[in-house]
């Protein structure tokens, strides 16, 4: 499955792009996380890395579709 991923903040710097396309083996958020960390090892250094699917924070067990809007959410620091 090929997914388009929006990236922000520290994660964007580590991945070198605002939006990246990544091919994953598997179908859920956990599978995506594994592929991301294998492809971009620097992501493992983040204090946390949440994944949002269709603009909502997602659990690791959530199933993904190629049409989903997926975003990586490194530790937030608004305010």
């Amino acid at each position: 499955m090929e997914l388009k991923i929006k990236t922000f903040g520290a994660a964007r710097d580590m991945m070198g792009g605002k939006e990246v396309v990544i091919k994953i083996n598997g179908t859920n958020v956990c599978d995506l996380r594994k592929t991301l960390v294998a492809t971009y090892p620097a992501l493992a250094d983040l204090r946390s890395l949440l994944i949002a699917v269709n603009q909502q924070y997602a659990e690791d067990s959530q199933q993904l579709k190629e049409t989903d809007e997926i975003a990586l959410i490194p530790p937030v620091s608004g305010g």
Binding site: G9, A10, V76, G78
Partner: peptide
């Protein structure tokens, strides 16, 4: 809570 959950980042 805004500082903990809202996807905004500062450098």
């Amino acid at each position: 809570t805004l500082k903990q959950t809202v996807p905004i980042w500062k450098k």
